[in-house]
Design a protein around this nucleic acid. Structure first.
Length: 633
RNA sequence: GCCGGUGUAGCUCAGUAGGUAGAGCAGCUGACUUGUAAUCAGAAGGUCGAGGGUUCAAUUCCUUUCGCCGGCACCA
């Protein structure tokens, strides 16, 4: 007798082993039809899975969240089947599920084209219509290798060879297509109702740039057409929010061929920058930082001592003068140590906190550049804290508070925290790394912060905590960082005199709230879709007259606001007010002031908000109060 | 850096089986003096990313190169 416990805690008893589908059938035919997989105890299984022992079972239908991964994985197989039918010479490699979809990498004699994509998707639809049964079978390694060798799929053979000997291998077959896969999968292709192939790309075999480049096709798949449409709309929305587009339309900055990866900030973009920079200045002053400024170009020997030359020499811009070689600084930390090294430091001086809006250059690979998010010249809101080992945990904790405090001022409250530990390529011995990693973990645990561990992702000189903020579309942007460094101060000869009179090497914390100001502004633009809050808006108020008659009154309103520190512009152009409103609204200016004969007569202005709300007539002093109240930062 | 795509007026884009290009908007000039998301008219605006080749002739074909876009790889 087999007992199967269902989610409502009822127990069904069966005489003989039976499949998950049989259990579903025993409940109702409609449920059997809707069942896509089953969860036996904690494992997802195909509906064909044979239940032999007592277990708990939850039937997975379209309504369950678990079904998404199954659908996406099956969609990847479906795509591979379509590709093999259309292009028999293509070899399949891997096809995993990713966020929102799936991809499959193929080895093929030529690149796929957008036209191919249309054909492939069409063929996928045909296979769905034919309602092909998806069957699972298990094979020994030897048989599996033999099978894939017989059909000429050498990548699959390579994959199987890398799978541990003791693991059972399962194959999934749908009509003429068989793939190696752990599963589970949908029972038949008709379960795949909402998918779309989204893009083509090159991708290295096994993710290694030394390997052959494969043809990757990305797709997305969902439970329903509606979910698919929602996702596609989200992609469209992301396009509309693209900082490169908004940056151009709002005249914030530009980039051009002569300076790839560099930014030309226009007055409006720079106004945003300055607001942010000043805010950080105010906030870190509260936390005891002292701002410094260090040279842009420093002798190569410093970078050799710091270890950067060996590690990142390729990525540094260099120059020379009178037989000396220099590097344009890619980081500020060595220079901050040089400031620390001036004069004798006592333990009583610690912690010392230096901050710098440091303009750094890194010769990033051309293919990695992206708008203002990934550039070759960026400005770190950098800071280095020199302290004793006893102080470092408090300093780490203090910085964590600072990060959350500043993010909140920009409306970011959803922050992911990650701890990255020692990478393969690193400096310093393991005992130093042990201490550093433990200290960071303790600082996080002291704040009861949940964090994600990222083994091997640390910097070459120390482990780090990363702060990634989530924007309104749920996208994650890594910004803040806190890195503990037991190596560089020693390499560059930093010391302080301890209580016992001995010379000791301080611990250094590298830290940045935004990492790159350029990138952060890009994130802000996309998060707000250009509708920046009043305090950040490059132009806060635009004053529009109805006709020439009110020009001088409008000008006096403009002057009054300007003299009170508001960023405003006056539009006396010879256009209809509807035209001016449209123009200024497209510029995403938070407030529009409209001035006609009525306003002149009553000594008022009429206020219209960016979202279109007409706020009626207000007195000028009321306006300043209203705007002032909104500028809480 | 790698794979693929792409580069035409300030912007968004059309176009040429090879015969040196066209629209809308913006800008300019003029008229209109305007009440909450585009008033009308006129004139003007381009080494078709850059270099080389084929050709009587190249923006178009070939080639090199640069930038940009989508991924991959990288990211102190």
């Amino acid at each position: 007798m087999i007992q199967v416990k269902l989610p409502d805690n009822s127990i069904k008893e069966f005489e003989n082993p039976l499949t998950i589908l049989d259990v579903a059938k025993s409940i109702s035919p409609s449920l059997a039809k809707a069942t896509i997989a089953g969860k036996i105890d904690e494992d997802l299984k195909d509906v064909s899975y044979l239940i032999k022992n007592n277990c708990t079972l939850r039937l997975i239908t379209e309504k369950d969240d678990e079904v998404l991964d199954i659908i996406r994985h099956s969609a990847a197989h479906l795509m591979a089947q379509a590709v093999k039918q259309l292009y028999p010479k293509a070899q399949v490699t891997i096809g995993p599920v990713i966020e929102n979809g799936f991809y499959y990498d193929f080895s093929y004699e030529r690149a796929f084209t957008p036209e191919d994509l249309v054909l492939i998707e069409k063929r996928m639809q045909d296979i769905v219509k034919s309602n092909i049964i998806v069957e699972r079978k298990e094979l020994s390694r030897k048989d599996a290798i033999e099978y894939f060798e017989s059909i000429g799929e050498k990548y699959k053979v390579e994959i199987i060879s890398a799978i541990p000997e003791d693991q059972t291998l399962s194959l999934y077959t749908q009509d003429d297509f068989t793939d190696l896969c752990r599963g589970p999968h949908v029972p038949s292709t008709s379960k795949l109702k909402a998918f779309k192939l989204t893009r083509l790309a090159g991708a290295y075999w096994r993710g290694d740039s030394n390997n052959e480049m494969l043809q990757r096709i990305y797709g997305t798949a969902w439970r329903t057409k509606e979910e698919l449409d929602n996702y596609l709309n989200m992609l469209e929305e992301a396009k509309r929010r693209d900082h490169r587009l908004i940056g151009k339309n709002l005249d914030l900055f530009h980039q051009q061929d002569e300076a790839p990866g560099m930014i030309f900030w226009h007055p409006k973009g720079w106004a945003i920058w300055q607001e942010i920079e000043q805010l950080i200045r105010r906030e870190i002053a509260l936390d005891g930082y002292n701002e410094v400024k260090t040279p842009q170009i420093v002798d190569k020997s410093l970078w050799e001592k710091s270890g950067h030359w060996e590690m990142f020499g390729e990525g540094m811009f260099t120059t020379h003068s009178e037989n000396r070689d220099y590097a344009i600084k890619p980081m500020n930390c060595p220079c901050h140590i040089l400031i620390f090294n001036q004069g004798l430091k006592s333990y009583r001086d610690l912690p010392i906190r230096f901050s710098e809006f440091g303009s750094c250059h890194r010769n990033e690979p051309s293919g990695s550049l992206h708008g203002i998010m990934r550039v070759r010249n960026f400005t770190q809101d950098d800071g280095h804290i020199f302290c004793t080992e006893e102080q470092m945990q408090d300093e780490a904790a203090k910085f964590i508070d600072l990060v959350f405090r500043i993010y909140a001022k920009f409306g970011f409250t959803n922050v992911a925290v990650k701890l990255s530990t020692r990478p393969d390529k690193r400096v310093g011995d393991d005992s130093l790394w042990d201490n550093a990693e433990i200290a960071l973990a303790k600082a996080l645990e002291g704040k009861s912060l949940k964090y994600i561990l990222q083994p091997g992702e640390g910097a070459f000189y120390g482990p780090k905590i990363e702060f990634a903020l989530k924007d309104c579309l749920g996208r994650e942007w890594q910004c803040g960082t806190l890195q503990l460094d037991f190596n560089m101060p020693g390499r560059l000869g930093a010391t302080y005199v301890a209580e016992d009179g001995s010379k000791k090497t301080p611990v250094m914390l590298h830290r940045a709230v935004f990492g790159s100001l350029e990138r952060f502004i890009g994130v802000l633009i996309e998060h707000y879709a250009g509708n920046l809050p009043l305090w950040l808006a490059p132009t806060q108020v635009a004053i529009l007259n109805i006709s020439e008659k009110q020009a001088s009154y409008a000008f006096s309103v403009y002057n009054s606001l300007k003299n009170n520190g508001f960023r405003c512009e006056l539009d006396l152009s010879n256009e209809k007010v509807g035209y001016k409103i449209r123009e200024k609204t497209l510029q995403k200016i938070p407030y529009l002031i409209i001035i006609g004969d009525k306003e002149v007569e009553n000594n008022t202005i009429t206020l219209r908000r960016r979202d279109g709300e007409d706020m009626g007539q207000v007195m000028l002093n009321q306006l300043q109060e209203l705007l002032g109240n909104e500028l809480v930062n």
